[in-house]
Amino acid sequence: MKTLCLLSLLLAMPALADILPDEVASCQGKGAGTACTTPDGEAGTCAKISVTRPDYSNGIPPSYKSVEMLGCVATAKGTARSMVPWLGGGLAFLALVAAMIFKPRGPTSALA
């Protein structure tokens, strides 16, 4: 069960990326020295980094504590993360929608 959960939760990395700092999320489930990609799209390796977090344990205002976590540290330039493939897919989607609306068929169209 535990392995199954961990395997399936690997798919949840983007969601965890919202909870953890990006550089920490990309090293979730990896060991120190493992290859990773930094939030800026650079190639890196997982290493211990220090992350500052607000600590609300005693209410407001919070104190701040430093937490050691495994994070992705850049080692060389890699490919930049890009939205282009997603936006390309989006445009293809719109083209498909347009094709379905304007394809020759009965007397009515979806816009009418």
Binding site: C5, L6, S8, L9, L11, A12, M13, P14, A15, L16, D18, I19
Partner: peptide, 9 residues
Amino acid sequence: AEARGGYLQ
């Protein structure tokens, strides 16, 4: 924590 992250995804 991880189950919650998985559900959110």
